[in-house]
Computed example of a mutant assay.
Amino acid sequence: MSLGLLLAFASTGARADGLSVIPYGDNCWGTGTDADRDGLNDDCEQQVARWFMPLFWFDTGESGSERRPYFAVKSEGFATRTLRIFYLDTFFEDTGVTTGHDGDPEFQIFEVHYSGGRWYLDWVYLSAHRKSVCESSAWYSYEQLEYDTRDARNAYRGWPVLYVAEDKHATYNNLATCDSGCFAQDYCSRHVAQYLDTASAPLVSRNVGSTGVPLINSVVLNGKTERLLDDVDFKGWDDQWYRPNSKGYFRHLNDFGF
């Protein structure tokens, strides 16, 4: 880890809060193509999801970071200019020693709003073994998050830095929270930093729409199919005979109204 990144966490200097790089504001609502019929411009959805996409820190012992992320966006209301973004991490596997399974449907929800030419991060929900015996998921305010401001396009209340539990992929707002997660069985460190989507054009053509109006559901990879929005298991495009599969994303999307 570089000293520059540590300093970036510690101070935001005189830089304005939020993001100014997203080429939409009020016109995110009620303009352009709206394939999922949610009142939002589809390109705005992609731009907002792309620019708020988190930076992950992976631990030194991480052995299963492969993923193919997707997203969904919904409006919380034009009056408040507020959106929620649901990031589907779709890790291919959980490689925990005693908890390993095919498919790892961890996710994050970001609540953001537009005001005065800039977009601001307000809240994040970080899944951490949601609906399991060691449930550690939680909502965090923007004040409880870290931000990588080495990139001049980012600032406080822009895209956040999150910590990924070794092999099990629960996400946390800082190292201390991670190390207390799942009855203190989770562990994080700053070893490798990667954005959620490492592609050169992040999250392009990855908008799943919603469970009511799906844009992407069946996804074929390596000859195997996952149905991201159906109430079925998520196997991480793998399905090994010697380990169990995961419950899919449907129940999480449904719980949060996506």
Rank of each mutant, 00 (worst) to 15 (best):
E111M: 00
D36P: 10
P202R: 08
T98H: 10
V208Q: 03
S205A: 15
K74W: 02
V213T: 13
Y156D: 09
S137R: 05
G30V: 08
P214C: 08
Q240F: 12
E226Y: 06
T98C: 11
E45K: 05
A72Q: 06
A199Q: 02
D148S: 06
T225L: 09
Y120E: 05
F52M: 06
A155H: 07
G248T: 14
A138M: 01
V213Q: 14
R251V: 15
N154L: 08
T90C: 09
Q240R: 09
Y242N: 14
L175R: 03
V220D: 12
R150M: 09
R190F: 10
E62W: 11
S75C: 00
G257D: 13
R227N: 12
T171E: 06
Y125M: 03
V213Y: 10
A79N: 12
H191V: 04
Q46D: 11
V204F: 10
D34F: 01
W139V: 08
S115G: 04
N222E: 12
Y24L: 02
N41E: 11
N41M: 04
C178D: 09
C28W: 02
D231C: 14
E66W: 13
N41F: 07
F256R: 08
G64Y: 13
V192D: 14
E106F: 11
G30A: 05
F183A: 05
R150C: 06
A49Y: 06
K168A: 05
R243D: 15
P214R: 03
L7M: 13
